[in-house]
Design a binder for these strands. Structure first.
Lengths: 413, 413
DNA sequence: AGCATTATTTTCAATGCTCGAAAAAAGACC
DNA sequence: GGTCTTTTTTCGAGCATTGAAAATAATGCT
């Protein structure tokens, strides 16, 4: 049952994909630049670009710009035709939902934000919730409706293996519905669910070019602890399998109570609520706070930075949990980069001593040395970015790399 | 710098690789069967097979056999021409070295076994050790010498990132030499080093067809604890990166002393010496026994099976270590199959209650249910098998899938 | 024996893609 | 206006795949 990648049609699809990918990665550029980037000949680029132009997927950019010299024939830059497609992107959090309409060029066109309460999905089935907002959006943007190609949803929790819904989620009443499949059926478009932690990894990949093809573990620390992993530029695992649940990796048997109901998860020590609980010497068995205000978390960091014993201790415990978690991860998967992002990234230096000490207890670190762990606090919206780029890239490769006429759309997630 | 896979040469290489892969997986078969297996047309199979025959890589099999009916023209089976290539395979263990000469059909041609002592590599540099044995082997098999294409070495320990040698190894004095690169230079052939645990995964993949393209974590329990992982039939990671060090994942901070010198590794509880130590209530901080006789280990199992308290307790501790380790792995990587192999596989049922209890402490298992964990004790020589198939497959895909004339051999590891 | 049937392989012409080389295009420079 | 330089396009050649038709090689029936 090995899949064949053989006929000349596949070659063309591959090369179209290469061209679109180059454009996605480097932005508007000349045909010559694309030839260099993709390794294809100028002749092939001309042929492929002719098709793409005829299909209206790309457009020639009037104003062209050579970097330094301006000797010979000036290059004609090409870039995505923004109107060629649209995507609707949902980001669901515990307390808010954001729906963004983006065009094929990756530009934000419209956005709807909604507050969510624990009762939201108790009263409204998730599918209706999404459908309603989508209807509002398309009503406001009639031109986009016709060429809307994808709906992608960023979720937290554990996905069904088939990707149709969630098995578990910290967002109340969201799990247990196959809302991805339902929504797809309802609107007749592919709907994909993405785990938030994995989008983080995708976003980081696009925001920092040096990480685009690297093996990276991106750890989010904030109201939760999550990790997304890439392996040489590929996100590991498909929709369902391979999702990482780093925040809920066990740190200590029968340890602190986690929001998920288990005990001893890394998150229960390293997420904001865990640090808060330990800083105030609340028993580990106490129910976690439902939400921690941002300034309370950041004042905790400030106290630790200025020497407060209790706060320091709490961050030490957090560092220890993260450190042992990373050390255990390294025994399975050893990425070339480890990034810490999210509100907790600012606390990296507070945690680092304990992280390093924990890592030193692992053979891999003893042999290979400590991995470099860096904080990226200035990334703005890596999750949105990840959702955006992943979805557009998916449109490029699945829909547009194939020749028109042989459209074989897998509707559904 | 995206790599191009474009011109018609690549297509042919891909399809030749597909054909060779089909032959490798299913053995001798007719052209029609290959067409079905690879998805290529009969015409293409004929063309490709013509080339392969002309190159002497495959041969037509005289005696052909249809399964049931024998109506039409009888099929002509093709299979590998055994003399087309040879590979030399080293398996280095703590106390023995085995060098096997295999032909392109995977048949064992000759074998040299040597005892190893802790002083072996103190007196002799590893490279000379390998060169000597290789010289003996080729002297005995002059015909194979000319078409020897690969030397592959199964090792234990942590590889250098470039794969040229070992950074650390339980085999004395083997680490610290770039013996892979040296040997390659010496004999002018590619030499590859493979971590034993990963070959295990590769071997299991070939021994059980249902696992060939699955995502599997294979855990070896015996004198060490090791794990090899496949992801949809691909071994994760390249030569260096992505190697798993499951046995040395931390189980308990400052726990039992491991052979590697660290404390609290899973191996220190679950390998034979760990179980032995706990069964006899030797302090956890005691230096591990250098080697445990097989019958001592198996009598320990027998005692536990017949209710001996101390032995049962020791296996409980082992199960707990393995269980928490697997639970922690599941937070990063969630394979569809978990296999236990090696001498310790017989003890799976002794360990299972504690394994399950540990897994139940992880959120992933709570949500997805316990993974199925099965023992494969009847596998014979999965490591040799893995080394063999990986090496032959590498010859197929790297050397022979490319058209003759455009040979671009990367000598060296 | 002879002919129809069945199944595997090979042959053949058509299609489509890439590539290198050469030509064309579009300005800048003098 | 002519020369240079750099980007694009054009053109013919080469190759691999494919579907359909032909060839091949037995078996089974009359």
């Amino acid at each position: 049952m090995t899949r064949t990648v053989s006929d000349s049609d596949s070659v063309r699809r591959l090369n179209r994909g290469l061209v679109l990918g180059g454009l996605r990665m480097q932005g508007a550029q000349s045909r010559t630049a694309l030839a260099g980037l993709t390794g294809l000949s100028h002749a092939s680029i001309t042929a492929i670009m002719g098709d793409l132009l005829a299909q209206g997927l790309v457009a020639e950019l009037a104003g062209e710009r050579a970097d330094g010299r301006s000797r010979g024939r000036p290059p004609t830059n090409v870039h995505f035709n923004r109107a060629a497609a649209y995507a609707a992107l949902f980001e669901i959090d515990v307390n808010r939902c954001r729906l963004s309409l983006v065009d094929y060029g990756g530009v934000l066109v419209d956005r709807i934000e909604t507050e969510i309460s624990p009762k939201t999905f108790e009263d409204t089935p998730p599918c209706s919730f999404f459908t309603e907002r989508l209807a509002t959006l398309t009503a406001r943007n009639p031109t986009a409706r016709a060429t809307l190609r994808r709906v992608a949803i960023s979720v937290q929790g554990i996905l069904e293996r088939n990707g149709h819904g969630l098995r578990w989620s910290p967002i109340q009443h969201l799990a247990g519905h196959a809302f991805g499949a339902d929504l797809s059926e309802e609107i007749g478009l592919p709907v994909t669910l993405h785990k938030r932690g994995r989008l983080l990894a995708e976003g980081v990949r696009w925001l920092d070019p040096s990480l685009h093809d690297a093996s990276v573990a991106t750890v989010f620390i904030g109201s939760t602890v999550a990790m997304g992993v890439t392996f040489r530029g590929q996100i590991m695992g498909r929709g369902d399998e391979g999702a990482t649940e780093f925040g809920h990796m066990n740190h200590t048997p029968n340890g602190a109570l986690c929001r998920c109901g288990m005990r001893g998860c890394i998150e229960a020590y390293a997420a904001d609520y865990g640090v808060l609980r330990n800083a105030y010497s609340v028993p580990e068995s106490a129910q976690p706070a439902p939400a921690v205000p941002a300034q309370q978390y950041s004042s905790l960091m400030h106290r630790a930075e200025t020497g407060d014993r209790a706060a320091t201790h709490a961050f030490n415990l957090a560092g220890r949990a993260v450190g042992y978690g990373l050390g255990r991860m390294l025994a399975i998967y050893d990425p070339s980069h480890i990034l810490i992002v999210g509100p907790g990234a600012r606390a990296l230096e507070l945690m680092r001593p304990e992280i390093n000490q924990a890592l030193n207890a692992s053979l891999v670190c003893k042999i290979n040395g400590l991995p470099s762990i860096v904080a990226h606090h200035d990334e703005k919206e890596p999750i949105f970015r990840g959702l955006l780029m992943k979805t557009l890239n998916d449109i490029d490769q699945s829909d547009f790399a194939a020749l028109p006429g042989s459209e074989k759309i897998d509707a559904g997630t």
